[in-house]
Amino acid sequence: MTTSHPLEQAVILVVDDVPENLTVLSTLLAPRYRVRVATSGARALDLATTGTPPDLVLLDVMMPGLDGYEVCARLKADARTRDVPVIFLTAKSDVEDEARGLDAGAVDYITKPISPPIVLARVRTHLALKASADFLRDKSAYLETEVARRARELTAIQDVTIHVLASLAETRDSDTGHHIRRTQHYVRALALRLRSRPRFAAYLTDRAIDMLFRSAPLHDIGKVGIPDRILLKPGRLTPDEFAIMKTHTTLGYQAIDRAETLLGIEVGFLSTAKEIALSHQEKWDGSGYPQGLAGEAIPISARLMALADVYDALSSRRVYRGAWTPEQVLAEIVSGSGTAFDPEVVEAFLEIRSEFAAIAETYADPDHHGLPA
């Protein structure tokens, strides 16, 4: 039993307005390929774009109505047939004619009267090239789809992991409620507002803002290491207790850094998470902790989180105090411009106060009804 070669299943569309030429070419090709014929350019386009496109087109140049150049141009302009190789068959043998045919998108140019061995060789060569190109194109499309699917899965796993870890920290403090969600959206709102400003434009790319949004929930992960007697104390902390509380920044940084080290590669959102965890308690005037950074030395990610964190902390109820009024929160943030906060970050906050209020309302705690704009 013999098995036919895959190329022998190929469909060849032969286009010529002279019936005798069609007969010659059909007789030559039919033993090896499936042959379809057209006696005009219009009919060729109809056959090529209806149903499954041919695998190759043998196209006469000189035809009434649509000539071969125009037919080829239309085939190449159509997404359904642009990858189908076209070989011109013509009695015109000038270099200019060949150049025009190749410029129109043809892959080859055979002059009449034809040589059967040359026609067969050229057809087989271009069918083989097309088969290879189709394979690579299909493989590439499959790989792109698979990479996109895996990327979506990885992103989902990362996001779930972040929220599980962040929620673990917050379960130790029943007052924080939906603090994770609110601060996450506050930070993104600030970033989107600041991205057009010269001081922030280079950093706040789409990717960086995505990293900020995904990393923000880990800003207080270090609180897992703070004793309950301090973390849950209803009153003011003593100096010694506050010194221990301040270590949550370094504890968080170290935990994330160890995770990244175990992975063996630098991960974008973890790098951003380390910045936020370590430096979100730094102040613009250098009076914050743990490193006493000041001004531009404070990472932008941490500057945004600093304001978002304070806004949410002041506007939410705590075991040792009630929520501040919107006016009190506003006054506190404005008074912190240039001392606690980057003045330009405060400006951005003032421009989008209504967005902050909407976020607070959307992610309100059960006994929290958001802040009016």
Rank of each mutant, 00 (worst) to 15 (best):
F88K: 01
D16S: 03
V310G: 00
G286A: 05
L120Q: 08
A166I: 02
L7S: 06
I114M: 05
D138G: 07
H369M: 12
V11L: 06
I180H: 08
A77S: 10
E347Y: 13
R195C: 14
P19E: 06
E96I: 12
A133W: 12
A99G: 00
T111K: 02
G105W: 11
A308N: 03
V57Y: 09
S132A: 04
R317L: 04
Y33V: 04
A302F: 07
G41P: 03
T362D: 01
D240P: 01
I352A: 01
A340C: 03
H185E: 15
L29V: 05
I114N: 01
S174W: 09
L350N: 05
V224C: 14
H179N: 05
I352L: 00
T261M: 15
L192I: 10
V224H: 13
L263H: 15
T250Y: 09
D342A: 14
K274N: 02
A38F: 15
A357M: 00
A306K: 07
P227N: 14
P31T: 05
S354N: 14
E146H: 11
R318F: 15
L28D: 00
E282W: 14
V86Y: 10
P239N: 08
A128L: 10
E361P: 00
S337A: 13
F341Q: 00
P366C: 06
G268R: 02
A121K: 05
P198V: 08
A357W: 14
P6C: 03
L307K: 01
A141H: 11
S335I: 00
V310M: 04
A42N: 09
A340Q: 13
R152P: 00
A42H: 10
A208K: 11
L314S: 00
M211A: 15
L7G: 00
T39R: 09
A201F: 13
T111I: 11
I114S: 04
G41H: 06
A331C: 02
P227K: 12
D17W: 14
D103A: 13
R321C: 05
P234M: 02
H5F: 13
A128F: 09
L278N: 03
V119N: 01
G336Y: 13
L307H: 02
I333F: 11
L350T: 08
D94S: 15
Q291A: 07
T52C: 04
S215G: 10
K274Q: 11
E351H: 12
E327V: 14
G105T: 08
I157N: 06
V71I: 08
V107T: 07
G235D: 09
L120E: 07
K223G: 00
R122Y: 09
F242R: 07
V329S: 04
S301C: 11
D159K: 06
C72N: 02
R34Q: 08
Y186P: 01
L22P: 02
D55F: 09
R229H: 15
G286W: 10
A128P: 00
R321F: 15
G295Y: 06
L56R: 01
